[in-house]
Design a protein around this nucleic acid. Structure first.
Length: 771
DNA sequence: CAGTGAGCGAGCTTCCGCTTGACTT
């Protein structure tokens, strides 16, 4: 059929490339890896040179059989997966899975998707690099061994269904350690002195800061008093030129950071939107660690900048990655056509595109030229000097288009400074001594965690977003907005020869959508740190990467490397398994005044819980789960005792008892065998019977509205309103309704008929949804 | 989803990286 079959990793790429190649070429995609280790088994023969058992992934069976068919009828198969470890392995796996041979198979690589690059690649094919394949195998086997030996250990020692891995466990550790730092941070305060001054003549006020801060309010007060009626004059003015350069074009990580800071997107959201822009051909590939732009792109940028801003704004650059372990198989993320200043798409896509366009264009624009002015001012009432700094843009350059934001954007703006001369007298408008507290390190956001992971070389562009969602799904960390801590601060003001004092409440931290560790995350980190310090070492990944590189260069055997690692690792797993007991993080809080028994908090099978009495005591202990937001690290005895006030009997309704209790999904009201969750506004400790009845009635109303139709002839059959529209239930089994069906018009016969059609059976979930 | 937590024991959970759809009760 086709003479040449070219296989790439992504279907969008396949479509583009097919346009560049002639009729004789058919381009298809493998959709990433086609072979992997079996998910349900270790699939690594640890007694036999660590031989991995790769098999065709279940969800790739169809792709592989289609490709196989096409490959059979082709003269030549061109394996064009990415030029990195994983890409090489994809080619090798395709080679095996499609039953290819050396005579009709060629391996090619290209970094940019242009006709020239691809034609050139076709002209210079090579064979599959087995060393690179071995390096991937080592990476894959190492991750499997770590993940599949540590996770079961956690199930036994801590809690079922937990997970551990080279990447995720260290990501959690970063957040746990940051929280510890914050907990141990001792905030100190000092009074900062700021003067608002104005030269004679036009009313141009500017601010200057005094060179010293004062620890005590009294000292600050004394200082202000000394400056009542003082003379201010300019001692020196220094002007110096400064430059600002644009940031490199986007990689996955920097795109996630900027989209988070400037647009407020989560990393998963950013990737979803970028994927959509990529699929519609608007931007280049979005999973990349490269800051490189192709010559074509730089050419487009040059003409676009010249046209829109003028020649003096052009300054092309080649950026080099500073990230260790960067594989740079792709270009940086950029618009496919820089002449499109915006795109026709939904709002989020437009905004993300706009960001990418600006960043790309700015990266090829001239530096901004600034002039910094530093004015030194002396006061007759002070020993040291006041300093005012100003910044004037002489030439805006790339700033015309784009300025990168930073994580801590609370830096004060540098104001304009009026034109003045040395010796000029100034009038004091106002002087303030404001108490400032030192701030603890900020909690991570999703995006700043990605930044840190990238710095440490942990994870890859394709895994940042999934890793962050995994550690949230496992409940190791939570993303939350918490009430920020306030601190009382004093501000003294000198104005019109008078000193007044006022009190402010300053936010110590801004905790909007920040990452917090949970009790389980803290406990698991502690456990792994104690027993597996090597894997929890921030340098572990970087160190093994060096060894993968040696394997890729043919300087090392992959299974030798794994053997060296696995020996001591596996021994540690075994001794921990045998010698250490349950790791519950148990904390003794004190004595229950009612029973005289001990009260503990710890991690149980279902998460954090409190316990009155000892497990091996004759009388069974009482248990209660901790509420959301409570932590075994910080909960007090009083708070714990309150948890045992449930279930609480509120009285009777319709001759049946109404009780309120706290369960797995929060507080609920129980009545006549039914459960109803209570809303956030209601406090289970003080809820009244009347309010509980309201909740019961509201639930009944919702249930009534849920039923579209029921049949008195067969009560097992019901048509219900669900989250995704109408559906059919027969004897607890759900069925989809065929498209276009009006549920309220269906007869009982219709329902039976629908249930018989296997098309309407709901798909079985491949993996059970985690609680 | 279902409102537990000892004991009994079967059977389940899990990794990282490469890619997109399929399709939810």
């Amino acid at each position: 059929m086709t003479k040449n079959l070219v296989i790439v990793e992504s279907p969008a790429k396949a479509k583009t490339i097919e346009g560049f190649l002639g009729k004789d070429f058919t381009v298809r995609s493998s959709f990433g890896h086609v072979m992997d280790l079996n998910k349900t088994k270790l699939s690594v023969d640890v007694d036999n040179e660590f031989e991995p058992k790769f098999e065709i992934s279940p969800d790739k069976k169809k792709t592989v059989s289609e490709l196989k068919k096409m490959a059979k009828s082709a003269d030549t198969v061109w394996l064009a997966s990415d030029e990195d470890r994983e890409g090489e392995a994809i080619s090798w796996h395709l080679y095996k899975a499609l039953g290819l041979n050396d005579n009709n198979t060629k391996r090619i690589v290209f970094h940019e998707i242009t006709k020239v690059a691809i034609t050139k690649a076709i002209e210079s094919p090579r064979g599959i690099d087995k060393n690179l394949v071995s390096a991937q195998q080592a990476r894959r086997v190492l991750d499997r061994l770590v993940g599949y030996e540590l996770s079961p250990l956690l199930w036994r020692k801590v809690k079922p269904s937990l997970s551990a891995g080279r990447v995720q466990s260290v990501a959690v550790k970063l957040i746990v350690e940051r929280e510890n730092e914050i907990r141990n941070h001792k905030s100190t305060s000092a009074f900062r002195i700021v003067a608002e001054l104005a030269p004679d003549g036009p009313n141009q006020i500017f601010t200057a800061e005094y060179a010293e801060k004062f620890k005590e309010e009294e000292q600050a007060h004394d200082f202000l008093r000394n400056n009542i009626g003082a003379n201010f004059s300019i001692e020196s003015i220094e002007k110096k030129p400064a430059k600002k350069s644009p940031a490199p074009p986007f990689t996955t990580s920097t795109l996630q950071q900027e989209a988070s800071r400037k647009l407020g997107f989560s990393v998963a959201n950013t990737m979803r939107i970028a994927q959509s822009l990529y699929e519609s051909g608007k931007i280049t590939y979005m999973r990349t660690d490269s800051v490189n732009l192709s010559n074509t792109a730089i050419g487009m940028a040059t003409s676009e900048i010249t046209k829109s801003y003028g020649e003096e704004y052009v300054r092309t650059r080649k950026f080099a990655s500073k990230i260790k372990g960067a594989q740079e198989a792709h270009e940086a993320i950029r618009p496919t056509y820089l002449s499109n200043h915006s795109v026709d798409a939904n709002n989020d896509e437009k905004r993300l595109y706009d960001l990418i366009w600006k960043r790309t264009i700015a990266s090829q624009m001239s530096e901004a030229k600034l002039e910094k002015t530093i004015v030194s001012i002396k006061s007759s009432g002070a020993d040291k000097k006041f300093t005012a700094t100003g910044e004037v843009i002489k030439f805006d350059g790339f700033l015309k288009v784009y300025l990168e934001s930073t994580d801590d954007d609370n830096g004060e703006k540098q104001g304009l400074i009026p034109a003045m001369n040395v010796g000029d007298a100034l009038s004091l408008m106002e002087m303030r001594a404001r108490e400032r507290f030192t701030k603890h390190a900020p909690r991570y956001t999703e995006a700043s965690l990605v930044k840190k992971m990238e710095e440490l070389g942990i994870g890859r562009p394709s895994t940042y977003a999934p890793t962050i969602s995994t550690i949230q799904k496992r409940e190791y960390i939570v993303k939350e907005t918490r009430e920020s801590e306030k601190q009382k601060a004093t501000c003294l003001t000198l104005k019109d020869n008078n000193i007044s004092s006022a009190v402010h409440y300053d936010n110590v931290s801004s905790d909007k959508s920040k990452l917090f560790p949970t009790d389980i995350g803290i406990l698991v980190t502690k456990f792994l740190d104690q027993h597996f310090d090597r894997i929890m070492d921030y340098n572990f990944t970087a160190d093994v990467e060096k060894e993968f590189d040696e394997i890729a260069e043919g300087k090392k055997e992959w299974n030798e490397m794994i053997k060296d690692f696995y020996g001591p690792f596996h021994k540690k797993v075994e001794t921990t398994q045998e010698q250490s007991g349950k790791f519950s993080g148990e904390r003794l809080l004190g004595i229950d005044p009612a029973s005289g028994k001990k009260i503990f908090v710890k991690i149980g099978r279902f998460g954090p819980m409190a316990q009155i009495g000892e497990t091996d005591a004759e009388e069974k202990p009482r248990f209660a789960g901790l509420r959301k937001g409570q932590s075994i690290e910080t909960i007090t005895l009083e708070e714990t005792l309150k948890l045992f006030d449930f279930p609480r009997n509120l009285g009777n309704y319709e001759d049946k008892e109404v009780t309120v209790a706290i369960g797995r999904f929060g507080p609920y009201v129980k009545h006549n065998g039914g459960f109803m969750s209570i809303k956030k506004e209601d406090d289970p400790a003080s809820i009244t019977l009347d309010r509980a009845i309201e909740i019961i009635e509201a639930k009944r109303k919702a249930d009534r509205e849920k039923i579209i139709k029921s049949f008195p002839e067969d009560e097992k059959v019901q048509l219900l309103n669900g989250r995704y529209g109408a559906y059919l239930v027969i004897d607890k089994q759900n069925y989809k309704l065929p498209k276009g069906t009006e549920a309220s018009e269906l007869t009982l016969e219709d329902c039976y008929k629908i249930a018989e059609d296997p098309k309407n059976m709901p798909k079985k979930r491949s993996s059970r949804k985690k609680k």
